[in-house]
């Protein structure tokens, strides 16, 4: 574990010393800040629209950071030959892969926290006018949702219980915060799957540019079309139908981690059990992709 942490530390250090990372980061933060701070006559719909644009930008930026950072990790190590002094130490190839994954994933996590913090502060400070009504509706929905959850969830989400000192408005705000935290968590889990997937691509396709392009096409394809594949399959003749169905069940459904609408429309937070299942789903796919990456890389000849 020590080796994995040491390698991931180097990945993070490289990221914060590279200028291109900051360009994307500042750009997104700036646009988020600008759009989030605009308020057209306190029109609730406009504020929601701006929230939607900001969240979309955060999603795009996070994918760009995750894919571009991960795709060049191993090819760059091989190209710059920094991999040789490192693997000449008692470091296994599995530790090397895990270190790279962990570094990229943690870096994405840090970027996400900052993005969501920006988004949260800006949209909450500017959207307060329309949020009071939305907050009340969210409170009602949250109360309804909490009554349906099991006792375990009640214990975990104990903070959702009303007490005599709490007003419906504070409960609504708490639900909004919970929505943000869940959106951030699931987004990060999704980036874990993406990072592991791109890492696999980078050991198969050794050129970073090819790896980045194919990863982008694949991931955007899954996000946009993944949930419709089963419907597409129904209209196809055999054996194409079976092939598309197999694809539908094999691909990681990244769109399941997208709960932006809940944040935008101040809907009640999802149940903790569902959130846990999504996390488990992400862990399984991440583990599978990391295993495949190790399997491909473990016997790969590295020549000076």
């Amino acid at each position: 574990m020590n080796n994995v942490l040491a390698i991931s530390g180097i990945v993070i250090k490289e990221l914060y010393r590279r200028k291109d990372f900051y360009v994307l980061f500042v750009l997104t933060a700036l646009i988020t800040l600008l759009l989030g701070s605009v308020s057209f006559f306190n029109d609730a719909k406009i504020a929601r629209y701006l929230k939607e644009v900001c969240l979309l930008l955060i999603w795009i930026s996070s994918l760009v950071i995750a894919i571009s950072t991960t795709a060049r990790q191993i090819p760059a190590e091989r190209e710059n030959r920094t991999i040789f002094p490192l693997l000449a130490k008692p470091v296994t190839r599995g530790q090397f892969i895990m270190g790279k994954f962990l570094g990229c994933w943690l870096a994405c996590g840090v970027a996400l926290v900052v993005f969501y913090l920006f988004f949260g502060v800006v949209s909450e400070s500017r959207g307060r006018g329309d949020s009071s009504a939305a907050g009340l509706s969210a409170t009602a929905a949250a109360t309804d949702a909490s009554s349906k959850t099991d006792e375990h969830d009640h214990a975990a989400a104990g903070s959702e219980h009303h007490n005599e000192h709490e007003t419906p408005e504070t409960t609504g705000q708490r639900s909004v915060v919970l929505n943000y935290v869940q959106a951030l968590w699931l987004h990060w889990m999704m980036l874990g799957v993406v990072t592991a997937m791109v890492l696999l691509g980078s050991v198969v396709l050794s050129a970073p540019s090819v790896s980045i392009t194919i990863s982008f096409i694949g991931i955007i394809g899954i996000l946009l079309l993944g949930e419709h594949l089963n419907k597409v399959a129904l209209r196809q003749p055999q054996p194409l139908q079976a092939i598309i169905y197999t694809g539908y069940f094999l691909i990681p459904h990244l769109e399941w981690f997208d709960i932006r609408d809940r944040v935008i429309y101040d809907q009640p937070a999802i149940a903790f059990g569902d959130c846990g299942l999504a996390t488990l789903y992400a862990i399984v796919y991440t583990g599978l992709f990391l295993f495949l990456t190790w399997f491909v890389f473990r016997r790969k000849t590295l020549t000076l």
Binding site: E14, T82, F84, P90
Partner: peptide, 20 residues
């Protein structure tokens, strides 16, 4: 990997993380 615990290796050219 344990075979490499007691060795030091210097490659022909310098292949190190240049941002460090």
């Amino acid at each position: 990997p344990i075979a490499r615990q007691r060795i030091g290796y210097l490659p022909e050219l310098t292949y190190y993380y240049k941002f460090l």
